[in-house]
């Protein structure tokens, strides 16, 4: 039964085919929370919200409804915001109970992968929060998305029953699987700028010059410069020469992106965290080292990392405004 509120963290997937299965799982979860005095948040589309409100009746007034498109804006940011909500609720002695249906439509394969990784990593990030998260996944989603959900959620919900998920994979192992595929090579002829000096103002001037012809906004340029400086600073401190920077633009299904890649010959130790776990304000101890990678993820649309005996590659993506160069 879901009903035993132990205060322990739970993260469950609710696979559903049709409205009835959705409500059969979601409504008991929400009502439980209201009865227990939890902070109950429902992240959904407008259509789902109406459905839930109808079913809950007056009790809907106890629930915060949030638009899914706004909530699921950026994997790392969503994770951090949700985590600080959980911490804030816990601070008031209340459990955060979140019904959250991730948005999968209109995501590129790379973005889908990052959202799946976030589903896995939150098992680590939320471990001590006592939050209760229920994630509905429609049967109509691509089979790979539903299959991944069974790897990233420790439990599955059917109606008001939760059972352990045999397919659940250790979050870090899942995250590593996300990075199994080698990165495609940069476009032929991409210039590799060698970085040898710790003074990086000339590097920023180079990057700014490279992106001058793109439609990157001033704010995004600043984000990119901060991210690149951070990654290069890490490479200078912890990596091995040669360190190189490459910049190119890429069009993917009409989406234009700027890609900025930093490579070095070193490899990261296991347990580096890859900047995936949000720092907690009250536990800000690891100020140095790869902690900055967390911020780099926030600054970029997407970050890819590969590290091993062949060296380390950090690829930072920034989405460019407009489609097809418009």
């Amino acid at each position: 039964m879901i009903g035993t509120v132990t205060g322990a963290f739970t993260h469950r997937v609710l696979p559903y085919a049709g409205v009835d299965e959705y409500l059969d799982g979601a409504i008991p979860f929400v009502r439980e929370g209201i009865a227990a005095g939890d902070r109950v948040v429902c992240v959904s589309t407008v259509g789902r919200e109406e459905l839930l409100r109808d079913e809950l009746g007056a009790a809907a007034g106890e629930v915060e409804f949030v638009d899914a498109a706004a909530w699921y804006g950026h994997p790392s940011r969503t994770l951090a915001d949700c985590l600080s909500d959980a911490d804030a609720s816990a601070g008031e002695g209340r459990r955060l109970r979140l019904l959250g249906e991730p948005v999968w439509a209109f995501r590129s394969p790379l973005e889908v992968l990052e959202w799946q990784r976030a589903e896995a990593i939150l098992n680590v990030a939320f471990r001590d929060t006592g939050a209760s998260l229920l994630c509905p996944y429609a049967a109509s989603l691509p089979p790979g998305v539903v299959a991944a959900a069974r790897k990233t959620h420790p439990e599955t919900v059917r109606g008001d029953r939760a059972s352990a998920n045999p397919g659940f994979v250790d979050p870090w192992a899942f995250s590593a699987q996300c990075d199994d595929e080698p990165l495609p090579s940069p476009p032929d002829g991409t210039f590799a700028l060698r970085i040898e000096r710790p003074d990086l103002y000339w590097l920023r001037a180079y990057v700014a010059d490279q992106v001058r012809h793109t439609a990157l906004s001033g704010e995004d340029l600043q984000r990119l410069l901060v991210a690149v400086t951070e990654v290069v600073t890490n490479a200078l401190r912890h990596g091995e020469p040669p360190i190189a920077l490459r910049v190119w633009t890429r069009v993917d299904a009409g989406e234009r992106s700027l890609v900025c890649e930093v490579t070095d010959a070193g490899s990261w130790r296991d347990g580096s965290g890859y900047g995936l776990i949000p720092p907690r304000p009250d536990r800000r101890t690891a100020a140095q080292g790869r902690f900055g990678l967390w911020a780099v993820r926030l600054l970029c649309s997407l970050v890819q990392i590969r590290t091993g005996e062949a060296g380390t590659t950090v690829r930072m993506w920034l989405r460019l405004p407009g489609r097809d160069g418009a």
Partner: peptide
Amino acid sequence: APEMRAVLDTVGWARLP
């Protein structure tokens, strides 16, 4: 500068105690 402020807002440092 507004661009720098945007970076701070993005990474959430502005909320640091």
